[in-house]
Design a binder for these strands. Structure first.
Length: 453
RNA sequence: GUGAUUAUAGCUCAGUUGGUUAGAGCGCUGGAUUGUGGUUCCAGAGGUCGCCGGUUCGAACCCGGUUAGUCACCCCA
């Protein structure tokens, strides 16, 4: 049979996995230093935990797991005969694959509330699954790296998460722009424009600003039944770049003023001037997710920097505050704030900018090559010693023709090979060959170990 | 869910208006070279042209259907 992969999934080779774990370990190191702890949740959740949390669209994108055993025996007969898939699901599937890390986190917090010290700071790096049509940079299986704190309203966390973004990207070597806005400011705009009930429609439109431009946003809003007068007001406010200037506009909106106050507070804890990256208030930042209620964040590659001017990539991270994260599971008044790192996109950007370290500590350092059965046995004893000395080493499994063994060494990109035949066994001096330079020298095993260490 | 596009060797892809035996590069195997790889040179293996049907004297090529991938939209990371 011809091997194939399910749509929207991919394999990761050794090289890619090594690079990805470089990103993860860099991120983790920072999370841990800021006091965040790791958790993991199961790949599968009960379908009842997942459905209804991501809107109608989201429900369609959930992967459902078929019940084990004779699942049709218990199927809802009426729905089955009517071919009503939506109605049938609950009788043939009780589990689904994780769609994001936030909802499982909320469930986790509620279930373990008695064992958790609040504020609870956690990070989580796991794959999630979405039954979306795949396209460029978009898959059905992908990793999310989430860092959240739940159980506190303090704006120090908004400041702290901004610092985490700043520090992680500085460590990875990507210069970014960290954009911050506040949902209350967006609510204020909607209020001032007299369309408080259409705030979601407005934010969805504003969110597309860099993609479709100002005129596009106007059209988008018009198509969503927002009046011309309101659009005028909204566009006018969007031109304002500083918080102070907004205050005048928001005299009639308590919500808007509250948003400004929150932003100012965050900036008293975190001074953008101290940041390694650009950090700025961006009134046009909206983010589609409707559950955000306070600050919202988004990170983009700074294409104003000469070395990064050709990078075309959407946001590589985002997040925000949600006032009632756990309410749906019966735990009220639990405010949370968190951000996410787009691992796959960060990977692509680093690849393009050549930011991964050249020296790979996980790679093979030396390969043993023997000429005959006798020297193969001898070489294996040497190999054991080299490995015991902490050097990544391997032996070609059979003493076959030199050419074949050397070709394998090339394919593995191993920097050195050790050749062992009759003369080496007699003298005790092994032939150490530098695969890059092409030269070789006769050295004792101990000298080789010292040299390769 | 809507639309576009692609499917030919292990991989990446050519293949003329429909015409005899479907090609190239890379990779693989063997040799030039029995203890030395990368660069050369020679030879070889490897194909149900996605699948089903139709048109035709004749189909990789035209038509219909189908399956799968990719890309864009909706939405999202």
């Amino acid at each position: 049979m011809k091997p194939s992969l399910p749509k929207g999934t991919r394999d990761f080779g050794p090289n890619e996995v090594n690079k990805r774990s470089f990103i993860f370990s860099t991120i983790k190191e920072v999370f841990v230093r800021y006091g965040y702890q790791p958790i993991e949740t199961p790949t599968m959740e009960n379908l009842s935990t997942l459905t209804g949390k991501y809107g109608e669209e989201g429900d369609k994108l959930l992967f459902k797991v078929l019940n084990n055993g004779d699942y049709l025996a218990k199927a809802n007969e009426e729905a089955l005969n009517a071919k009503d898939s939506v109605k049938l699901i609950s009788s043939i599937s009780k589990r689904g694959l994780r769609y994001d890390l936030t909802v499982p986190f909320a469930r986790f917090v509620v279930m373990h509330q008695n064992d958790i010290a609040f504020p609870f700071k956690r990070y989580q790096i796991q794959p999630v699954w979405r039954a979306d049509r795949p396209q460029k940079g978009r898959y059905q299986e992908f990793y999310q790296c989430d860092v959240d704190v739940v159980g506190s309203n303090s704006l120090t966390y908004e400041a702290e998460l901004t610092q985490i973004y700043d520090e992680v990207f500085a460590k990875l070597g990507i210069e970014v722009i960290i954009k911050i806005n506040n949902r209350k400011i967006l609510a204020g705009i909607a209020e001032v424009a007299g369309i408080a009930d259409k705030m979601v429609e407005m934010t969805v439109a504003i969110d597309k600003l860099d993609k479709i431009g100002l005129d596009g946003v106007k059209k988008e809003m018009a198509s969503r039944d927002i009046s011309d007068a309101s659009i005028e007001t909204i566009i006018e406010i969007l031109q304002i770049e500083d918080l102070a200037g907004l205050k005048d506009k928001f005299q009639s909106s308590e919500m808007g003023l509250k948003g400004i106050e929150e932003m100012e507070k965050v900036f008293t804890y975190f001074k953008p001037a101290d940041a390694k990256n650009k950090v700025k208030f961006d009134i046009t930042l909206a983010r589609g997710l409707s559950y955000y209620t306070g600050c919202i964040f988004e990170v983009a590659v700074d294409t104003g920097i000469e070395s990064q001017k050709d990078v075309v990539m959407g946001s590589i991270g985002g997040g925000g505050r949600y006032d009632d994260l756990t309410g749906i599971f019966g735990m009220k008044d639990m405010s949370g704030v968190g951000v996410s790192f787009g691992a796959a996109r960060i990977f692509d950007v680093m690849e393009e900018l050549n930011l991964f370290p050249q020296e790979d500590e996980n790679s093979l350092k030396v390969l043993f090559i023997a000429f005959d059965d006798q020297s193969h046995e001898y070489a294996f004893q040497c190999l054991t010693k080299v490995r015991a000395a902490g050097i990544n080493a391997e032996i070609y499994p059979d003493p076959v023709k030199l050419k074949k063994q050397m070709k394998y060494a090339n394919a593995r990109q191993v920097p050195h090979v050790i050749l062992i035949g009759d003369s080496e066994m007699e003298s005790g001096n092994l032939t150490l060959k530098d695969m890059k330079e092409g030269g070789q020298e006769a050295l004792s095993l101990d000298d080789i170990i010292t040299k390769l260490k």
